[in-house]
Design a protein around this nucleic acid. Structure first.
Length: 591
DNA sequence: GTAGGGTTAG
């Protein structure tokens, strides 16, 4: 009776009757424990040699996500066929074991079993996961030889492979060849640009997609929102949010988290919170996005409070959650809370602190002036944990608290282990400049030039009417350059009248000649802000994104700009947000 | 006994 019902449910009523063993497998479903029980019965009854039963068992084990049990089953089949190979290859690829995928692909070939489009899609995805573009190109050729060059699934997998690997030219070439471009293929192109830091291009592809009348799905929006986050383009992000609402798509966890992240990274934490509150389902990613949103926008206390709430009634925090919490504590000077979180990580959650956690901890102690404690901590770390990033945090603390002796020791270590990183030279030269040792500043500069190292070029962007304008220091390529520079000069003289004192020459701590020339006056953030002031009406907030950290002089100047223009100015730098209003900054000068 | 490609947090 029960079996008949089951056959009916499965829509196979009327077909040939199934064996009891097969029905037992169907009843077990994609659940490991029941499957293993049925497997045991098969062995006892001697029917474990039946290819049909083993195939069904293996398919269900795959579906259950147990890759190792699937492997064991596979090995128990004397002569595996193409279907079994493909099932195994697909499962290995899907559950994140790309090296197994490649291994079984090679053994399949060794068995002289011809691969199919199923094989190629999985293997190509695994090449992408392994970031093995060379292997991927080889598999691509093999697919062509086998006659799968025109298969739409293989083509989509190749688009994804090339765009993930950053070879966007090859991705386009493949994409152009596709007779029918599915949403998935469009999504691969968009996410490829976004993941490779080419957010503007990602948006361009998104616009093209819509012009051609292709309906975006939730994955499209996830990637497009990530691109808006990267650009700090709040206006664009809001319009994408409206598109999401108008599309009537269900806001799943991924989409919700992406919205939270977009609002948070564009400086609008309250909107981020609104999205969080409206979500029906929230996972650790959504909670972590919210904590880090509070942290980077200068709401350290709220971040810690939110973390408490998460512990009380949210999902279990993971290592990334702790990075966000520790970063919040570091930026808000919440030393006891940070210590507690760090200890609880291991004690209560069994999580092993990684380099990132140590960076935050050293940063937190260092900012708080506990330089000796921070240094002691580094010295107690193992060789692998004491990564350059941890020492870099220490160096930043030495500079902040003007501890020249320790700073020099730390910097020398860094120059030894990472002689090719220009940041370390810049930092050491800044320390010497602050100590007034200009001869040493010169020496470091010469060392940099000798090793042909250049400081990264700083730039700032501002988003106005869905367009992004980029400014770099001393940049004069913009059509309205002269107006911007003239206006900036006027603005700075008004700031000086209001009490702003530009940093004296000795603390200009700039390394390169052209930077000295343009000095502090024309740093990119000031140019972008000036442009924003010229282009928007009174009272409108100005939002800027900078790729590096802001210098102290700009930080001071923008406070005054916020007074004399009566505007709110929001700057996202490499690490965090600065919300300037009425002469003060949300970071409370603690950054 | 017979399937599949893309996306999310620091």
């Amino acid at each position: 009776m029960e079996a008949k019902q089951l056959r009916h449910d499965l829509g196979v009523a009327g077909s040939a009757p199934k064996s009891p063993a097969y029905l037992a497998l169907l009843r077990a479903g994609p659940r490991i424990k029941p499957l293993q029980q049925v497997h045991a019965h098969l062995v006892v009854s001697g029917s474990h040699r039946s290819r049909a039963l083993l195939t069904k068992l293996l398919t269900l084990a795959c579906e259950a996500g147990s890759i190792f049990y699937t492997h064991r089953l596979f090995l128990s089949v004397p002569i595996p066929d193409a279907f079994l190979f493909n099932s195994l290859i697909k499962a290995s690829s899907k559950f994140g074991f790309p090296q197994y995928t490649v291994f079984f692909y090679h053994s399949m070939l060794a068995f002289c079993i011809p691969p199919s489009s199923y094989t190629f899609t999985s293997v190509i995805k695994s090449c992408a996961d392994l970031s093995d573009l060379r292997l991927g190109r080889g598999v691509h050729s093999h697919a062509l030889v086998c006659g799968y060059g025109a298969d739409s699934f293989v083509q989509a997998a190749l688009v994804s492979l090339y765009s993930k690997s950053g070879d966007l030219g090859a991705a386009w070439k493949m994409f152009d060849k596709m007779p029918h471009r599915s949403v998935v293929a469009w999504n691969s192109m968009i996410s490829g640009y976004e993941q490779n830091g080419l957010s503007k291009e990602a948006i361009v592809v998104f616009d093209q997609m819509r012009e051609l009348g292709v309906e975006p799905d939730s994955t499209t929006f996830v990637s497009v929102l990530a691109a808006c986050s990267q650009l700090g383009a709040l206006g664009l992000g809001c319009s994408v949010h409206r598109d999401v609402i108008n599309s009537g798509l269900h806001v799943n966890v991924a989409l919700g988290s992406s919205l939270i992240n977009m609002y948070a990274r564009c400086g609008n934490v309250s909107k981020a919170r609104e999205v969080f509150d409206s979500m029906k389902e929230r996972n650790v990613i959504a909670w972590t996005a919210m904590i880090s949103g509070y942290a980077t926008n200068g709401y350290g206390t709220q971040a810690v409070e939110f973390f408490r709430e998460m512990k009380a009634r949210g999902p279990v925090p993971n290592t990334i959650t702790f990075v966000a919490v520790l970063a919040a504590c570091a930026h808000a000077g919440l030393v006891p809370e940070g210590r507690e979180a760090f200890a609880s990580m291991r004690q209560d959650y069994g999580l092993v602190p990684s380099v990132e956690h140590h960076v935050c901890l050293v940063d937190m102690l260092g900012r708080a002036g506990l330089l000796n404690e921070a240094y002691q901590l580094i010295k107690e770390l193992g060789a692998e944990e004491a990564a350059p990033a941890v020492w870099t945090a220490m160096l930043g603390a030495c500079k902040m608290h003007k501890n020249f002796d320790l700073g020099v020791i730390v910097a020398e270590h860094l120059l030894e282990v990472e002689p090719e990183n220009p940041g370390h030279y810049v930092m050491l030269s800044n320390i010497y400049a602050l100590a007034g040792q200009m001869d040493r500043v010169e020496m470091i500069r010469n060392m940099m030039m000798g090793r042909s190292l250049r400081k990264r070029v700083g730039y700032s962007t501002i988003d106005l009417n869905h367009r992004t304008y980029l400014f770099s220091m001393g940049d004069k390529s913009h059509p309205e350059t002269s107006e911007v520079y003239q206006h900036l000069d006027e603005l700075m003289s008004r700031c000086r009248e209001a009490g702003y004192a530009p940093a004296p020459e000795s603390v200009m701590h700039e390394v390169e000649e052209e930077e000295r020339e343009y000095a502090l006056r024309y740093h990119s953030e000031k140019l972008a802000i000036t442009f924003g002031l010229l282009k928007t009406k009174d009272g409108v907030s100005i939002r800027i994104v900078k790729n590096l950290r802001m210098c102290e002089d700009c930080h001071e100047a923008i406070k005054f700009i916020s007074i004399v223009t009566k505007r709110e100015i929001i700057v996202r730098d490499k690490l965090r947000f600065h919300h300037f209003k009425d002469g003060s900054c949300s970071c409370m000068d603690y950054w």
